[in-house]
Design a protein around this nucleic acid. Sequence first.
DNA 1: TTGGGG
Length: 455
Amino acid sequence: MSSRKRTGMREGYEFMPIRDVGRSVGQKAKLIGVILDFGFPKKSKGTDFCCCLRIIDETHHQISMAINMFEENVERLPRLAAVGDVVVLCCVEVKSFKGEVNVTFNKRFSSFGLYKGKDGDDLDPYHVSSYFHHVREDESLIVKLRKWLMNFQPHEDSSNFPMLREIKEETSVNLACKILHFCETAKDEWIIFSWDGTNTPSNVICSKLEEEINCPLPLQLEPLPLSREVLCTLPVAGSILRIMFDKVVVKNHLHLLNVDKWVKFMNIHLKVVDGLWLGVFSPQSRLRYTPNEDSLIVERQRLSDEQLFPKPLFITEEVNQDHATPVTLMTVLTHSKVTAKFKCVVRVVAAMPYLAKNLLSSIGKYRMQLTLEDSTARVHAFVTGKDGETLFDGYPSIDELTRKLNRLLGVTGIKDAPRDPPWVSVCLKSYYVSKTDVWGSRNFKIFGIKIVGDT
DNA sequence: TTGGGG
């Protein structure tokens, strides 16, 4: 029995640095730490809501310690103002799991108080649980922790944070990226737009060409395209990864996401939907404390200046070669003028119609819609009349036209096989249909290119 | 009760 207990100090109200927590497995403890990781609340498998944090202090920061908190409703769980804030935890249970020490916050006897992190100077908690008592003796510990945090540099291993150009389907990864935008796309459905300056790998396309008419390959994962106003604030190079939330994750901490700030996401699940990359903020995902001067972030910011561009496979040829430098589809989408001409390097991911015999309208003119994709965006582009004659080199036989189209679309001939369209160089013209709504009626069409090579 | 590393 400790001397404190003998003097009347009740178990669980005795402060200990995180380093020493391991000696108290099976007992209750009082801890003061900095919140390094924060997982959004979710429903537990029992009756409660649960929230998983990881904390550090000056005695224990190489590896953080897990705190699992349970409360009967979300409002009672900690409402963080920022990751990196200070938490005082009283009467929490120290446990051991898989050889590691962790801590459980039990709603029946534990309590917490949240305090501002390194930039705070007041000593009043901004959110407390029932039964929490701020005590004067904690104040010096909080001040000491804030002072330590000022000079604390998280040292992240860069290899634990793959860049968007390195991501793989159906994996969970940590991402260090800049939040460009986030919005509610439907009731309680939020999307985060994140970016690190690199291009995500291109994916095979599994949609069926014959279904393009009824079930077209989407241009983006969000149900409605972003407004032009928002679109024009986004970078024109580098892929934008959409991150959506798993249904069970409670979205009452969206204020922790700051537009234009870089952030470290832990355990984001990666999927491919309709050939587009999607990150999922799952119940296991967390936000990590990301100070501005974080060395990993400084490095990523620097790397984001290096832009990569896919190498065109020249199965198309410009009729009037102007040697213009290709631009990204985001450049096209955000261009300041409604009518303009561009050269882009893209993949043709869908076509409508897709059968050579249907490419001509009733008056014998080419008329089709292509879906173009690069690492930044997708757009629809029409091929009409003379531009079709240029693209397909006149009016070849149906067989020849099929071969050309298949080459463009990456169709192998094996029925329903996923397509992997080649990168091609195209000239795009933007124009409008309605004088009263030039931006709303803006379309794109392909011109001045032809499919060449061995078809 | 519940949940639980890099």
